[in-house]
């Protein structure tokens, strides 16, 4: 009787805390949306959005940031998936060290990273004590700068991507699935492509979303490497105008959530994390 009474009782305080939490997160968003809709005095409208989207520079910078985000995501997956997989499979003792390394971007500010990149890659890289140059300065060309940007973003996104993938791999019995695939004749490439990647897809997409959000809003790397990305554009816009940056911020936020919703829809219901379940 006591147990059933406990179940039926309205969890008043739980709902209070939940409501307060929702308020904490939703109120600023609501304020942002409300502000972005009031460009015209006493009228609720989408003028700020129309004005922001009409700006050519918006499309240019946003498109460029999306491109950088996509490249960062691809390179991160290529680098981190095999690394996390190999650590789970063959080098579990290295996991702590790698986890520590992936956390470094949290304690080393982006400003240090960007100055480090500029310091190293703004002059030719030569073999020590010789005149022989291995690589031209990367900062001198658009292509080279893009490489630096993607490299820098990869470092900034490392904690999120590595942890997402590692958590995804924890939910499947990577070792046994690998051995099962091997015993059926599969090579390493096939195992990663057909067995591991599909089973960490949700984790991969979560990591990708986080990287996307970081890259699209990032300011420091883009500013100091002198590229016209969306982050610096939004910052400059904020100095000159009031309503358009709010509209763009809300639109970007909405875009991120819509993308996450699509991910949930696309990846839901395919029985991930059931490998090895008894």
């Amino acid at each position: 009787m006591k147990a059933s009474a406990r179940v039926r009782r309205f969890p008043f305080w739980s709902w209070v805390w939940f409501f307060l939490g929702v308020l904490y997160f939703v109120m600023p968003l609501y304020a942002l949306l409300d502000f972005s809709l009031r460009m015209e005095r006493d009228v609720i409208g989408l003028k700020a959005y129309a004005s922001a989207f009409a700006d050519k520079e918006f499309l240019q910078t946003f498109g460029y940031s999306v491109f950088l985000a996509a490249m960062t995501i691809i390179v991160s997956i290529i680098l981190i998936v095999p690394t996390a997989y190999w650590i789970r499979l063959r080098l579990p003792e290295a996991r702590r060290i790698v986890e520590f390394i992936t956390l470094l971007p949290f304690v080393i500010p982006a400003i240090i990273l960007v100055f480090g990149l500029i310091r190293v890659y703004s002059s030719p890289i030569s073999i020590p004590f010789t005149e022989f140059s291995l690589m031209a300065p990367l900062t001198n060309s658009r292509f080279g700068t893009n490489i630096l940007m993607v490299g820098g973003y990869m470092v900034l996104g490392l904690p999120y991507m590595y942890r997402s993938i590692d958590t995804g791999m924890r939910t499947v019995d990577v070792r046994t699935l690998t051995e099962a695939a091997q015993s059926l004749g599969a090579n390493w490439f096939t195992i990663i492509r057909r067995v591991i990647l599909p089973n960490v897809r949700t984790a991969l997409l979560s990591g990708a979303m986080l990287i996307f959000a970081i890259v699209v809003g990032e300011v420091i790397l883009a500013t100091y490497l002198g590229v016209s990305a969306f982050g610096p554009y939004l910052l400059l816009l904020g100095r000159a105008r009031a309503f358009e940056p709010a509209a763009l911020s809300f639109a970007t936020f909405l875009l991120t959530w819509v993308a996450m919703g699509i991910i949930q829809l696309v990846t839901g219901g395919k029985g991930e994390a059931t490998a090895g379940a008894h």
Binding site: E179, A180, Q182, L184, N187, N199, A275, G276
Partner: peptide, 16 residues
């Protein structure tokens, strides 16, 4: 993957 043996594991190891 070149041994021509089939293996059954304790944890089933079906590809989810």
């Amino acid at each position: 993957n070149q041994r021509d043996v089939g293996m059954v594991f304790q944890a089933y190891a079906l590809f989810p």
